[in-house]
């Protein structure tokens, strides 16, 4: 076995993508899952012990919050470099990785000088090839610094969660005020979607940070992302580039967001958004 892949849930899309990536590094892939509750340092130690025992060429995980965290622990314990959010691998001595910077707006090519190659795979950078995998369950090792979570508290609100929504209607500076979001909320509700916002909006105090879409906010992957009055700064695009389709509504025909959009409407969102809502109601009544 040449490549070890850490998998939590084999059905998970990101896990599938990580396995596909792993296969591009080397065909000989072993997927392992660690039993018991999550404890990042302990899981990191587990991977380190696996490396000591099996001497793989590489250890790979999905670039999810957990994947990055566990591999970082493993990297720290092994004192090896880690390429987080990798999208491509080219063999060599040393091999070259291409990894994501600026939430996806920039790529880095780097030489990975490690006796074992530690990498996490950027979400949605690789298409899963659907090949089935056998999962090996491993018991966790101990680590002196390991801390496990003591409890979990559920998400507070009802309504559609931003991460899972199929439709996200998002407002930026152009909305103008907290009250201005009423039309955004209306459209989101009509489409059964969630409301998002840009960082300027959170900074202005119009919406809570939980609504913020962006590099330092929530990353969304809806079927359609409707960006209203959002200019298209890279840090925002980092949050919504997972969307299958992007509709941008902006008064400024030169706004950067139009470069990333599938559909565009040039106009004042205060007129366009209510018009869309009215049109939806009309279409449904018919």
């Amino acid at each position: 076995m040449s490549v070890l892949v850490l998998v939590e849930d084999p059905a998970d899309e990101l896990a599938q993508q990580a396995l596909t990536f792993a296969r591009s590094v080397d065909g000989d892939v072993a997927a392992i899952s660690i039993s018991g509750d999550y404890a990042p340092a302990a899981w990191g130690q587990t991977l380190a012990d696996q490396v000591a025992a099996r001497a793989p060429q590489a250890v790979i995980a999905a670039g999810s919050e957990r994947g990055n965290e566990v591999l970082a622990h493993a990297a720290a314990i092994l004192d090896l470099p880690l390429s987080a959010n990798t999208i491509a691998f080219a063999a060599g001595s040393p091999p070259t990785v291409t990894r994501v910077r600026w939430g996806g707006s920039l790529l880095e090519q780097a030489l990975l000088h490690g006796s074992t190659l530690l990498m996490t795979v950027a979400p949605h950078a690789v298409a899963a090839d659907g090949v089935a995998v056998e999962l090996e369950v491993v018991s966790p090792s101990q680590h002196a610094l390991a801390v496990a979570p003591t409890k979990r508290v559920g998400a507070a609100s009802g309504g559609v969660s931003l991460e899972d929504a199929d439709v996200v209607v998002s407002g930026g500076r152009g909305v103008g005020s907290a009250d201005g979001f009423a039309i955004i909320e209306e459209l989101a509700e009509l489409l059964g979607g969630a409301v998002g916002c840009s960082r300027a909006v959170t900074s202005a105090g119009w919406r809570p940070h939980t609504d913020q879409v962006g590099q330092t906010g929530t990353k969304v992957a809806p079927d359609i992302y409707i960006a209203c009055g959002i200019s298209g700064a890279t840090q925002h695009m980092a949050g919504c580039k997972g969307a299958k389709k992007l509709l941008a509504i902006n008064e400024d025909g030169e706004a950067s967001i139009f470069a990333h959009a599938d559909y565009g409407v040039i106009g004042n969102l205060h007129e366009v958004v209510p018009a869309i809502a009215a049109e939806i109601r009309k279409a449904r009544a018919a």
């Binding site: 090896l80 390429s83 996806g104 780097a110 030489l111 959009a261 565009g264 409407v265 106009g267 007129e271």
Partner: peptide, 24 residues
């Protein structure tokens, strides 16, 4: 150990935006 060689702008998505119209 993670030695940056160069930075690359991601390839253009090749998206052609379809303008659906202006205004309401």
């Amino acid at each position: 150990q993670l030695e940056m060689v160069k930075l690359v702008l991601p390839p253009d998505s090749g998206k052609q935006m379809q303008v659906l119209g202006t205004g309401a």
